[in-house]
Simulated scan of single mutants.
Amino acid sequence: MMLTTEMSSRFNNLEKMSISALLKGINSEDITVPQAVEKAIPQIEKLVTAAVEKMKQGGRLFYIGAGTSGRLGILDASECPPTFGVPHELVVGIIAGGDKAIRKAVEFAEDDAAQAVKDLDKYHITDKDVVIGIAASGTTPYVIGGVTEMRNRGLVTGCVTCNFNSPLAAAAEYPVEVEVGAEFLTGSTRMKAGTAQKLVLNMISTTIMIQLGRVKGNKMVDMQLSNHKLIDRGVRMVMGELQVDEATAKQLIEEKGSVRAAIDSWKKTHP
């Protein structure tokens, strides 16, 4: 099987190119990524629809991956609580090799087809949960093993991969295949493939959270107010929604602790 993610770059003699030519070459490749993602929207829609249904029943979302793919899953999962005010255990990112692999590569961790199941089982997986495997190549044993077993157990399973007709896509019930083609630096899937995966994960988690009622209008009304910038943003949201002055909005935020609670409490007392 010839993987497009391993195809030779259409650029060569990179070490002889100027800085300007290198940057322009990388950018010219990156421009193609959103177009590739757009073609996969029907697949993404099917996966998100199935995930929303399970999560409305109390299910959780798990990402599993190795290397860059695993780190991207952890990044997306870790940003859900502060952005949408959900519990940390609602969206979970798992990487081959454990948390130490977030910063440093763990040799051969991705080659263990049984380990992902062990890692998932630590969370007491049920058939309400959703598991999405992330692997640019679509051939990572760790990810395929986890997705295969979870599908056998009746869970909703999906994947995000950058090769068509990969073993991972065959293993998942709802595959998302974004073929971005050869990388600028041959085989360096942290580049276009990683960008494509990041875009797709943004789409998946944001759409799920909107469907779960975690957004009002176009605002993050459940975001955690964990620093001055976010508190100021929350105050502006309350001012805009309720048409009140800054002092009133600040007081509401301080008393109620969230944008949603501030807005709801004001509307109850000022119908």
Rank of each mutant, 00 (worst) to 15 (best):
V52K: 03
A113M: 11
P175V: 07
Q115V: 03
G240S: 12
A135G: 12
T4H: 10
D127R: 13
T186C: 03
A262L: 07
V131T: 08
D245P: 12
M55E: 04
V156E: 05
Q197T: 02
I231S: 01
A182P: 14
I204G: 06
K250C: 10
V92F: 01
G58A: 14
L199I: 15
E6V: 00
A113W: 04
V92W: 02
I44S: 10
L3A: 08
T269L: 14
H228F: 00
S28G: 07
P271Q: 14
L22Y: 01
V37T: 09
E255W: 00
P271D: 14
E179M: 04
Y142E: 08
K39G: 08
E255N: 14
K24D: 15
I74R: 07
T248S: 12
K54M: 13
H88Y: 05
A171D: 11
F84D: 04
M239G: 06
S265K: 13
E183W: 04
D222T: 02
E255P: 00
I210P: 03
A114K: 15
M2K: 15
K122C: 08
S166V: 00
A247D: 12
V215R: 04
F84P: 05
I74F: 02
P82N: 11
A171E: 09
I95C: 05
A249Y: 00
Q197M: 08
A135P: 10
A109N: 06
K56F: 00
V117S: 14
G97P: 12
S265D: 12
R103S: 14
A51L: 06
N227A: 04
R60N: 05
T5L: 03
M191R: 10
G181R: 07
T5M: 04
D232Q: 15
A249T: 09
G146Q: 11
M1C: 05
T148Y: 03
